[in-house]
Design a protein around this nucleic acid. Structure first.
Lengths: 340, 340
DNA sequence: GCGAGTTGTCGAAGCGCTTCGATGACGGGC
DNA sequence: GCCCGTCATCGAAGCGCTTCGACAACTCGC
């Protein structure tokens, strides 16, 4: 743990010169800068974190609150944590984990001890307790997800309504007139904030385009996922020529498996699109079209907004919706037609 | 963000008195202490993190490195992260996340900037690159998991060999003579460090007890998990009266489902035990006996050891194995006998 | 009733860094 | 050739806390 003093000595300059050379906050002659950088490298110098926090007024840390609820979908969650961490590192920021009940107490603690420069809120519930807290603490806070009451908050999220609409448009454009929607289990529509948005967006656009749309929210159960299989069978037999899926990965696989069992080819006989649920639908058999969740997009924007707030910039309290993107993998085609 | 100065003023004492009263490092008269605590509460005072790091020589932060490998099992991983965080909070420590490639670069960075007091290493691979690094940095480091080369390291882990042996003993004691082992897919035996230990422990103890033991490592595939079903069928038809499972949750459920399909009752006709894989086997149908992974046990011990090292205590470089525990849920019985 | 502890409190010295204001050296315009 | 502006660098003042040593004010034991 070399100190700035040693670097200064090695480079034959004062410590303030070292500080300025390394931070770039004042101009330093090229020659001096080179000597300093060399000395710093040689000594593997990094500013002491505590001293830096105290003297500068940056901690270079964002707190990430994530209440690991019982219904938390681990893989998706991990993807978001990871994406946030990576996005933060781009700005030389580290992520401090605030879990569980600690989510609220931790936010308070971190705010009043000045441990973090900002807070990123993950796994947002419709009636999230962290909403009130965010309004009270004087720390830049960004929600990744949209709580019901989001007045005065900065939120970032995929535009789930538009995502669903995009899928509907694709199918409508191809000529489908009757589609089926396989959603999450019913409870998900109370505990999380986005499933209802997908459903709403889907049904609204389907109505607009004059499509017949049947929604099924199969219960989750054992390894057989009988309810999902049943849902797929019912929808297809009732005449749906396309399926929109908004459920977990296993249910996706099961739905495809059931279509295969029924002898319905994808996309020749049934088109399939996944909306706002999975990350990589190209690994399914067959690969399926999707309007995917893109954790990096949300997390990068969230971090960028947080950075702007830390830097004293103006960030309007608003819901920042990320435009969805359609990724074709060959699982849609005109009804009764050929692959597209 | 009240400062110690304000608390001192409010309580009518000097700042050093406040510091001592709050840290308990010197005796303070009960009356003074009360006044100080009251003032601190009133002002919602918390020592500034940066100042504390600088002046004390504690950051109150542990870095947690977790390289989110592609084959990382998200739910298990999350459970460990969570358990670590909770264990750390008991000592008033926070967790700083070091992900991905950042795992190594991050360890170096954190060590030389003095951002953390110690490092906890998660998701350890047999040939983990963090091993060398741990030996070089002058920061207390504890591995949660055991790399092949662990000389000079402090490691904590469930005693997987003993866990497997425990399951074998249970079955042997009940009178089983022929058991089947359903493991993870073959690749898991190269990338992770514990599957081989389970297998080794199981086969060794089975040999000791004179049991006939057949091992199958079914490939992982689609939602049907055909290989697992096949494995279960083959083992049972070959005469195994008990099944030891060391695979993911879905495979557990599939195995039970297959037994049901085959009309073999658990535990009357086939006993089933899960070893070192799942957290809660009581939710299966039927609930099954297990020697579970207990993230909290490993993580608590890891944190405790790290704390001891931070406090300058002597912690021998060694593998600290946690004794496994058998949890009965009624899925084992004497072969061809009644439930136990 | 006096020296020797004890106890409770205080002032001040850092911890390692950032940043402000000052200073000296230099160059260009007139 | 003088004045002023720029540029590169430096010294020193904190940032808010912990901790060391000092020191009154007591308490005892004899």
């Amino acid at each position: 743990m070399a100190k700035i003093h040693e670097v200064a000595q090695a480079a034959g300059v004062s410590i303030s010169t070292v500080s300025y050379a390394l931070s770039g906050k004042r101009s330093i002659s090229p020659d001096t800068r080179r000597r300093i950088e060399e000395a710093a490298r040689e000594l593997d110098y990094r500013p002491n974190a505590g001293a830096r926090m105290l003297a500068g007024r940056r901690t270079q840390i964002f707190a990430l609150t994530e209440p690991f609820r019982a219904d938390t979908h681990a893989p998706a969650h991990m993807a978001f944590v990871l994406a946030t961490s990576i996005a933060a590192r781009r700005y030389e920021y580290d992520i401090l984990l605030l879990t569980e009940e600690e989510a609220s107490a931790g936010m308070r603690r971190v705010a009043s001890s000045g441990l973090a420069d900002g807070v990123l809120v993950l796994d947002v519930a419709p009636d999230d307790e962290r909403v009130d807290l965010a309004r009270r603490i004087a720390l830049p806070t960004v929600f990744i997800g949209v709580p019901d009451d989001h007045e005065g908050l900065v939120c970032v999220d995929l535009d789930f309504e538009a995502a669903a609409a995009l899928a509907v448009d694709r199918l409508a454009d191809l000529g489908h007139r009757s589609i089926g929607f396989v959603g999450h289990p019913p409870t998900a529509y109370e505990k999380s904030n986005f499933p209802p948005r997908v459903r709403r967006g889907l049904e609204a656009r389907a109505a607009e385009r004059g499509l017949d749309c049947t929604t099924v929210l199969p219960e989750s159960d054992g390894p057989r996922r009988a309810p999902v299989r049943e849902a797929v069978r019912d929808l297809v037999e009732a005449g749906a020529t396309a399926l929109v899926l908004h459920c977990d990965d296993t249910s996706h696989a099961v739905a495809l498996d059931e279509l295969a069992t029924l002898g319905r080819r994808v996309p020749e006989e049934v088109s399939v699109v996944s909306v706002g649920a999975t990350f990589d639908t190209s690994a399914f058999h067959p690969p399926i079209d999707s309007v995917p969740l893109v954790p990096s997009a949300s997390c990068e924007l969230a971090v960028e907004l947080a950075m702007r707030m830390v830097d004293g910039g103006e960030v309007p309290a608003a819901v920042h919706l990320i435009a969805p993107e359609y990724r074709a993998h060959g699982s849609t085609a005109p009804p009764g037609g050929a692959s597209d």
